[in-house]
Design a protein around this nucleic acid. Structure first.
Lengths: 342, 342
DNA sequence: TTGTAAGCGTTATCAC
DNA sequence: GTGATAACGCTTACAA
């Protein structure tokens, strides 16, 4: 029913203080600022803590200290590995300074994301990790108003007042497209995530268009399909693209999950990859190497990004430093799904 | 630096009360027990809440109400999809009653799990979701002492005082082994997770041994390799098993991640699956269908399990009901990786 | 170095 | 139905 009330007779600071024969202030210091206390009294206090199995009450602590040592992250999805590694690294970095991460997922829905953000703020998050920059400006106002530091990852942008730790989605996508164009591909299709509220998705498409333009192709000739991120949707989109006349020789995908769907669909349809059609992904998550042929994709340094995002956020919350922008390099992971045009 | 302090001038209950011309008590009632308040005053209060963009302070609330509406989950890993779907379902169920889930991962390490549990408790978790039953009894004492309801998922056991929402790992594994034995397999190997502190892993191995025994085989002839759960480790284990003389005709795996590793290793080694050797998994996560051949595995109803686990936990925390045990059915997902013995 | 005591922002128990 | 007011358990000036 409740957990920390006296109903269960949980020990409080006062109990510990009494047991150790000191004041509550001293006990508090032992726990938060051991340096301020003599070795002897600290030993005595710690003994009491052990004996009583004392655990500090989070609510009381947050209330008094006006700080929770809790951070929040809202990611689009937990169901595939896209964000898992990065968030794990972020969490590890926080854990190393005894802070906790609350993770929520928005299912790629703006309204859900907004309520998750409010929720995390209400729960006293000291700082927030969000993905991408594309959201209602009111949200940034809300956060700025309460002085909550924010780091935006997986992208680079120019939202004032927040940190960015990400990479250049457009450039990465362009580089991959250029490689494909050099292999002779001209009829190109792209399976993208819904681009609304998704700056990463849009930038990736734009990168391809830029490469096409630079190669003298009409960027508007890019055949674009937008869908949700899932293997199933990737399959369906690939079907759609391959059913018509004038099949593309290259199907680029907004992420590896879609690309895996595309490759699986190709196999089901008896289409050879990369013989009949090449496929590319984005992210370089494990599944990209599991499917056959393995997928040529953009390698994103997820771990590093998560770790650096945490560092950047902590510099803001703990040291009061201003927001900063860190742009990471990506590289192309060359595998078998991309080959020269038929 | 801090987020809810007056530094940012955040509105408090008192501000709202003043604005609406009522007492703080009335504002509190409007928020928590609207029925106790007249329609008229409530309207006035809500208006003030809107105007001030008031958000209740979590710490203060937790302190006064002795309840956080926050639940905790400690799962072995977030890096693959094994627990993702179940936890997502658990979280969805909590979200529907405005409660929040804090997720932590232990990396399959008992000591890490213990500290995560303490951490969640310290943060005021009203209840806990843990995986499996195999842990230091002192942890259960600790939890019972503070009256924190616990639900154990992914397994069934007999730990008193806690709920179980899971399935019979041994029976599921046995059923799969029986099916394989019927196909003529006699030289069997098993790639398992570390079995220490992992009742699910042990039960799955035992299920296979039971099937062997029932089929007149010596259970001790099962070639067992224990390793960490990862594709890489699965590959390595498969290599080890296949390098020696007297290769097995069937390699069963403790989960799909290991099985994917096994199938990939087979391909690399030029070993045909299931022609030369059959492979099975456990869990039925998406990756099992991505690899080729797709993996025959035990389908676990993750979503359902997560949802029912939440229900069971809420019955304890909200309604004060006693712990309960719910055993779900699993079934075999038949795919191409298991075939008759060569 | 240690103690005293004033908050921190809610909820809940009384009266009215 | 509403308003005072006493907790809730901790942190942190300020004193000693």
């Amino acid at each position: 029913m409740n957990n920390q009330g006296r109903t269960a007779g949980l020990p409080t600071l006062e109990d510990v203080a009494r047991q150790a024969g000191v004041s509550t202030a001293t006990v508090s210091r032992c726990l938060n600022n051991p340096a301020q206390v003599t070795e002897a009294t600290r030993a005595r206090v710690m003994e009491a803590v052990e004996k009583l199995r004392y655990t500090p009450n989070f609510g009381a602590r947050a209330l008094a200290a006006r700080r929770t040592n809790t951070y929040g992250a809202v990611i689009p999805t937990m169901e595939n590995a896209i964000f898992a590694r990065g968030v794990q690294a972020f969490q590890d970095a926080l854990a190393s300074i005894d802070s906790t991460l609350l993770v929520a997922s928005s299912n790629y829905e703006a309204s859900v994301e907004e309520s998750q953000i409010r929720n995390l703020v209400a729960r006293g998050a000291d700082g927030l990790l969000l993905i991408g920059a594309d959201r209602d400006p009111a949200i940034y106002d809300f956060l700025a108003e309460r002085g909550i530091p924010v780091v935006l990852a997986w992208a680079i942008g120019n939202q004032p007042g927040v940190s960015f730790v990400g990479f250049d989605n457009e450039a990465a996508s362009r580089k991959l497209a250029e490689k494909a164009l050099k292999l002779g591909h001209r009829r190109i299709a792209y399976i993208s995530a819904q681009s609304i509220h998704n700056d990463r998705a849009r930038a990736r498409v734009e990168g391809v268009r830029a490469a096409m333009k630079a190669a003298g192709l009409d960027p508007q000739s890019l055949r674009l399909v937008e869908t949700h991120y899932s293997i199933k949707r990737g399959k369906a989109a690939f079907h759609t693209l391959m059913e018509g006349e004038d099949r593309p020789t290259l199907v680029m995908c907004g992420n590896d999950v879609l690309a895996v769907g595309a490759v699986m669909a190709a196999r089901e349809m008896g289409i050879d990859v990369p013989g009949d059609v090449s496929v590319t992904g984005f992210d370089d998550i494990e599944i990209a190497t599991v499917v056959s042929p393995p997928i040529t994709t953009v390698h994103v340094p997820h771990r590093k990004m998560g770790n650096l995002a945490a560092q950047a956020l902590l510099r803001q919350t703990l040291e009061g430093k201003p927001p900063e922008t860190i742009c990471l390099e990506t590289e192309i992971a060359e595998r078998a799904s991309l080959g020269p045009v038929g």
